[in-house]
């Protein structure tokens, strides 16, 4: 056996590497193709589950995930990079808006929320989507982390009527919303974000419902 030349060795190892790359990329591509539909379905199901927590599925009859308008950066909703508004309709009539919104002033940074506002201006429900508040202290804004399982803090917003929206402030600021001692900031951030989102929905309701599906406002 003669020593392989440097060029020969490079060519051989390069060839092997390419062969392995092709084979295993094909494996990944095949798996991707085989699971893509299932993954999309799972993601949609997850989103619908989240939305069903803020808006009862019985209160609309359209395909919610297909009926949305994209928003550019919107200061009222705290969206620096834009977000989506889903439009719930019952028999073609506006039923509710589901807004993606962000509270920029949480104790540990931004809190992403979804807020459902009915056509009559009342808040149907609110959920925190992502939050990093102090564990055990400020994280009660997420009902999964709230110790009170029967009446989680965030359900105070469920069914909040339009007439009571001016009182949508934490009690410390003179409003109606209770909060936990030592963790006012988290509650205040969410409460103010909900109030802003409800006001935004009321002010822009016609425009938001009228926009063609999938369009950018």
């Amino acid at each position: 056996m003669s020593e392989p030349t440097a060029l020969g060795l490079s060519a051989r190892t390069g060839g092997v590497m390419v062969a392995f790359t092709i084979v295993f990329t094909a494996l990944m591509a095949f798996t991707y193709g085989a699971t893509k539909d299932q993954i999309d379905a799972s993601a949609a199901e997850e989103k619908m589950k989240l939305i069903s927590e803020v808006l009862p599925p019985a209160s609309y009859d359209n395909l919610l995930l297909d009926d949305y308008a994209a928003l550019g950066p919107t200061r009222e909703l705290g969206l620096d990079n834009g977000g989506r508004v889903y439009r719930a309709r019952q028999a073609g009539q506006p039923a509710a808006l589901i807004l993606e919104t962000t509270a920029p002033d949480g104790y540990s940074g931004r809190i992403d929320l979804i807020v459902a506002v009915r056509a009559d201006g009342s808040v149907s429900g609110v959920r925190a989507v992502t939050q990093r508040e102090t564990p055990g202290l400020g994280d009660y804004i997420d009902p999964k982390k709230d110790k009170d399982k029967k009446a989680p803090w965030i359900t105070q917003f469920t069914g909040l009527e339009a007439a009571r929206l001016p009182q949508c402030k934490v009690k410390k600021d003179g409003g109606d919303i209770a909060y936990h001692t030592g963790a006012t900031i988290s509650a205040r951030a969410v409460t103010n974000a909900v109030a802003r989102a409800a006001r935004y929905a009321a002010d822009n309701q016609n425009r938001l419902f009228a926009a063609p599906s999938g369009s950018t406002l």
């Binding site: 494996l27 990944m28 798996t31 699971t35 993954i39 799972s42």
Partner: peptide, 11 residues
């Protein structure tokens, strides 16, 4: 492959 499978079937 495992990641995609988890994503699809154990979302």
């Amino acid at each position: 492959v495992v990641d995609l499978a988890f994503n699809a079937y154990l979302h």
